[in-house]
């Protein structure tokens, strides 16, 4: 497992270096002071990560379970496209008098949950006449079938689809950080404020940092997928 994580992360290094280089060049062209800007962006990343990571983990796990169970998962998956993270962030920002942190996480997590539910539900439906039927034919049934086979298959599909969810989650996090006044001050907020102020070096540095975060998260998700599903270990 560790070697798989290392391999995935190492594979992302060229992309990260490329991003850093591009950010450096653009920021340097835009004006002086790009080095401190890059430093500030990097320093703000952990706060963003602290918003994204629990949301992704929670969303994927819950979504996979709901998707495999069908019912509410199918409904959630069906309305998923109607609620991108930034829209939820705006709605929650208006209505939130209490617990803004929880609502912020929810705005990021809900779209990921919906996507995971769709993928897990599809995986389960696809396995119904193959893997699941074969297991039933061997006499496996009930909760053993759900916990030992359906859920792992759904989880594998949900984790395999995290690639696009990561990009959406980072975008949603930017909206949350910018709209929720208190409690969130990460790279997303830095990015929006710099862009509004027309501060090119800071905005580019923050965006590069967010992209780097996405690349890194993608690598980790790839490793996680490989850990759950041996078929994904090959590539």
């Amino acid at each position: 497992m560790l070697s798989l994580v290392l391999r995935r992360v190492l594979a992302a290094v060229p992309a990260l270096l490329g991003l850093a280089l591009a950010a450096g060049v653009v920021a340097a062209l835009a004006g002086p002071g790009w080095a401190p800007a890059l430093g500030a962006a990097l320093a703000a990343l952990p706060a963003t990560l602290a918003l994204i990571l629990p949301a992704l983990a929670l969303g994927t796990g819950l979504g996979a379970l709901l998707g495999v169970l069908g019912g509410s998962g199918a409904i959630l998956g069906g309305v998923g496209p109607a609620m991108p993270g930034f829209l939820l962030a705006a709605v929650f920002a208006v209505t939130s008098a209490t617990a803004p942190v929880l609502l912020g996480v929810a705005a990021v997590a809900l779209p990921a949950t919906a996507q995971a539910a769709v993928l897990a539900g599809r995986a389960r439906a696809g396995a119904e006449d193959t893997v699941l039927l074969a297991a039933r034919g061997r006499g496996v049934d009930g909760s053993a079938l759900l916990w030992r086979l359906s859920l792992p298959l759904g989880l594998s599909a949900a984790v395999g689809g995290l690639r696009s969810a990561v990009a959406g989650t980072v975008t949603a996090a930017v909206a949350v950080e910018s709209l929720f006044g208190t409690g969130f001050s990460g790279a997303g907020r830095l990015f929006v404020e710099a862009a509004r102020a027309g501060d090119a070096s800071m905005a580019v540095a923050a965006l590069a940092g967010l992209c780097g975060l996405a690349v890194l998260l993608n690598a980790l998700c790839g490793a996680l997928h490989g850990w759950i599903d041996p078929r994904a270990r090959m590539a």
Partner: peptide, 8 residues
Amino acid sequence: QDGALDPL
């Protein structure tokens, strides 16, 4: 028909 095994 497909003799499927648990892929995981």
